[in-house]
Design a protein around this nucleic acid. Structure first.
Lengths: 198, 198, 198, 198
DNA sequence: TATGAATGAGTGTTCATTCAT
DNA sequence: AATGAATGAACACTCATTCAT
């Protein structure tokens, strides 16, 4: 029951230990290439070379460049997504919000260039379509805001995510390293937004 | 001694009226292609075709694709930059800030897809290096915040611009059309940031 | 009003004399490669090389390999198709049939390997779909047989074309050179078919 | 001293029953892939997958793709070849000829797509060279025609086989199912050829 | 000055074949 | 004997850029 088109899912599940290692090496190589050379230098041959694998091996596991990008996206966001979901599930909505922001700041400053470029890739139509909409961050944020009793929760959720993403991207780009400080500043903007907007 | 590498500056200043018209046609074609087909479809041959010019003509005015991108960036931001500078020059810093935000919201919703894609291009190292740092928006914002008596004006300016850019990009992408409403929401976040952060 | 999908039609009509020459050179190179190396060696890079053109030039005129194949098919069959139509239009159906066969034999022995390989390509679904069904040879043959008063004209037309194609292909492959002799033998089979089958 | 190059012969004669079964599974998988996906989809990995074997196993029995193709060709033609030889051995040459044709029609309509594609593969130089000339159908047909007292037996044999192959290929491609009817029509052409050509 | 034909390095992708396990 | 991971040459196709006309 493939939830997304076959061409974007991983081509074969690695059965041997060697395979799992190769897949991991390719994904990490993709991350490194993206960080080092940006979207411009992000091509499958470069990734394979960096992974110490052949181009054929890459394509045994990822049926297309988009599938590779998607897999990297999911790998990078996996832990983030879980932590964000856990934050959103906290009983007190204020605590949920603050924790969500903190988690976001920490994630972004981990590998800032990678996160920023993946954010960009996430905007591409093909990738977008393949992402699991049900679990996206906006749903989490919307849940928090509904519990806060906001009638404009959908719009506010979109705005708050835009603030978070905008500020974390910029901070990462500038080379900031302290997630606590960044989270503190995001909190100010977010709480201001919620308080001042009725 | 040119302030930026020759290969990114416009190749020749159009002297005749016909030339000026051609340059303008190419720039507008670049904008249209970018809006219609995204970064994926943005190539010099497509731009020339859309402009009704030959590829050779395009290269007579723009020595490289990056130079074309840069020129478009500057054309699109020209009016915005002036309006933003005027806003920043208002005597009352609060009024300056609110006006700056309003100007930004209006600019972004004018041609949202174009603005968003150009924002992305602006992030590329080559383009970035060629942009005139002296006149960038951060200087304007920093000026406003200094007059507001903030000691952290540099960092706050960066944060506020990130908020503005993040929210306007997302709003444009969602298809919002009303700059007043958008500006209102941005104000809340920005003022909250300034009030809550001592 | 493109009767067939754009991706299979020629990409641009050559405007300058140089272009027309290039297109012709590429088509002839395609024919030569096909004759020399068969379908196995028929790739766009080889064709371009043989034409003394770059691969980019090839793709300026033919948007895909299939489009090139199709254009070659049409070039090779152009004169044949006209001659066959003229034959089929002869008042006496017997004369029409005999002339049709003669024309077919001559065409096939002209460049036998090329004709045979193009016959094969003609069978591929993509190519087939793009070919103009209205003018295909079976329609011509069907017309002749209807005038001969046959009630089974559709089936008979298919059979006779199969006989003609089968015999001409084999003759060409064996290196036969005399179209008159070949046509004579085809006539025997075809007339036998028509006489003996009621 | 092998009659054909080692690389095209089967790699090892299957000694154990399991091996024989594997070889058969691979050959049938090759047939199925060819029928389902055509020459375009006919690749060794797909065949192995369909056979439920690994690619390594395939290469243990068939040293190359061509060897696999050749083996399939021989498997498919095995029964046909025997039946055709039996037909050709009938005392009355007319009966031999008619039976030969009937056998051919039946064979072709059995698995029409497979037969047609294998006919095509049979035309490739490499495959051709490896086929055992001594037992080919043309020898059988030549024998029949010699007994019919024809001096042009070699040429006539080639022509008649071309007629038979052309008509059966086309009939199979059109989806015909009745070998009797097809054989009847082929008879007409063949007898016409023999009668009319002195 | 304008044109557009030509270029060719580069990119995504396939697939026959090998070989360590 | 069987497996399947790995290889890399080969191919279709794109697009920024040049230059003869």
């Amino acid at each position: 029951m493939p939830a997304r088109p076959a061409v974007l899912s991983i081509r074969k599940a690695p059965r041997q230990r060697r395979s799992a290692h190769t897949v991991e090496a390719i994904l990490e190589a993709a991350a490194l290439v993206l960080e080092a050379d940006g979207l411009e230098g992000f091509n499958t041959n470069a990734v394979a070379r960096r992974a110490g694998a052949s181009i054929g091996t890459l394509y045994q596991y990822f049926p297309s460049k988009d599938a590779l990008t998607l897999a990297l996206l999911q790998r990078e966001e996996g832990a983030y997504r879980e932590a964000a979901a856990a934050a959103a599930a906290l009983p007190d909505w204020r605590e949920a919000l603050v924790t969500f922001i903190h988690v976001s700041a920490r994630q972004q400053l981990e590998r800032p260039n990678l996160a920023r470029l993946l954010d960009q890739e996430e905007g591409r139509p093909d990738i977008r379509a393949a992402l699991d909409k049900g679990h996206s961050f906006i749903v989490l944020m919307d849940g928090i805001l509904e519990r806060a009793g906001r009638s404009d929760s959908k719009l506010a959720a979109a705005d708050l995510l835009a603030i978070i993403r905008g500020m974390t991207d910029a901070a990462g780009e500038r080379g900031e390293r302290d997630p606590d400080n960044l989270a503190h500043r995001i909190n100010a903007a977010v709480l201001g937004y919620l308080n001042l907007l009725i």
